[in-house]
Structure formats: structure tokens, C-alpha cells
Design a protein around this nucleic acid. Structure first.
Lengths: 107, 107
DNA sequence: ACCATATTCAACCGATCGGTTGACGAAATC
DNA sequence: GATTTCGTCAACCGATCGGTTGAATATGGT
């Protein structure tokens, strides 16, 4: 099948990783700053970031001693397209977007 | 966060399960018929169907000794919406994202 | 009643997951 | 040059995953 979809969906299946992606919506961040709101170790967050990178959902660039994490939303396109194949969904579901704003962007 | 998204994305992360969903797009199917194209045991397929059911992506109804599997695409809606929010908008311009939503919500 | 069919259950297997800790290397600061 | 900061690596842990096999449970057909 499409092994890239495996990686993308598996990466999205964890709430911590989805939260990280949501944070990166606002701005690029250093690894330490990504880790700050979470109650897990820095190494744990580093692993999550590696999984997101392997899935292509983020990219990491080291400048100096700081490694910057940047959202790569293009990687979601294939997965999103796969789901669109199931019909049923409009390009923009207003109720669902409202829910998205409440639950994910309350910051 | 939203534990339903965990289940949905985790269920989608396996190629066999995505293939099953694609098969069910065409028609409802019995468990044995779902299993037929795959090189794994019937019990293995039964487990996959249980995972899809737990995620809400399919429903199973037993009529006689046959258990029919039916696609439930509504469960994909939240996940699809979540992904589209990342795919369609410029990550670096959240303000534009919110302005866009505001105008859409009024329309 | 008997037998075949449809499906799940239970126990097991190796691999991977999410997490930890401690040591380590590389870059900035004093 | 010594020390702090940033981040990863390696080894470990228990839990879960995808898969198997064999037994169990229904239901249907004859």
C-alpha cells in the first residue's frame, strides 16, 4: 500500500504529538520550548519530534546549538486526500471548524 | 485532548485496515468475505474489525450466523477536519486563518 | 441428532510504543 | 578553560500491536 500513510496516521494517533503540531501552527519553536508545556522528559519529547519528522509532518533545522522545529503541513495532504475519498465531507465543515477552534486553538 | 481522535488515527495507521475500509466503501460485507483477499488468518481480520469498530469507523450487526460490517464514515469527520485545518492554511499566518474563519462563519 | 459454517476467545509470540534515566557531544557563556 | 545549556543516544521498562494457533460458541442445513 502506501507506507507514508502508515507513518502519518501513526504519528497523528498520539495526543502529545497532535498538541505539538498545534503549537507549531503558531510559530517555529526550539525543542526545549516545545517540551516546556508537557509533563514528560525532554528526551521523551525529542522522540516524539523524531516520529513527526520521520512522518514528514515537521522539519528540524539546527542553527547554533538550537534545533528549530517547523510545521510541514504538506505531508498531511495525502492523508487528507485519502479520507476525502470516502466522500461525505465538504471541503469546509463549518460546525467542525468551530469545534476545532474551541478545542485546539484555545490558547 | 480528544481520545476519539487517538482511536481513529491509530485505526487508520494500518494498511490492512485502510484496505478493509476501502472495500466497505462499495458494499456491506460479512467478516469471512472481508477476510478473503488477505493473507492473514480469519482471527487476525476479526481483530482488525474490532479495532475499526472501537474507533467507530465501522459497525457490525449480526444477522443469523453472519456478522455484517458496515462503513461509518461519520467517524472520519472530526479527523478529516482536524487535518484540513493544518493543510489548507498558511501555518505562519494564523491571523489570516482566523480572519478567514470569521468571514466563513458569517456566510 | 449430526455436521458444516461463521466468528470469536484465549493464550502465546516477537516487535514496537511511550516513557524513563544517565551518559554523552556540541555550542554558547563566563 | 571551565561550565552551563541544548539536544540526542543507549539501555531499559511495562504495555500494546499485529499476528498466530487451537479451542469454544453459535447458527444453519440435512
Amino acid at each position: 500500500m502506501d507506507p507514508r500513510l502508515d507513518l502519518v496516521f501513526a504519528a497523528l494517533a498520539d495526543p502529545t504529538r497532535r498538541a505539538i503540531l498545534t503549537m507549531l501552527l503558531e510559530d517555529d519553536m526550539a525543542v526545549t520550548d516545545v517540551a516546556e508545556p508537557f509533563a514528560i522528559s525532554l528526551a521523551g519529547v525529542s522522540k516524539h519530534l523524531a516520529i513527526l519528522t520521520r512522518a514528514g509532518l515537521i522539519s528540524q533545522e539546527k542553527r547554533g546549538r538550537v534545533k528549530w522545529c517547523k510545521l510541514e503541513p504538506e505531508a498531511l495532504r495525502d492523508a487528507s486526500t485519502w479520507m476525502q475519498a470516502f466522500g461525505q465531507f465538504d471541503a469546509l465543515d463549518l460546525d467542525a471548524f468551530e469545534r476545532f477552534l474551541e478545542t485546539e486553538l484555545r490558547a
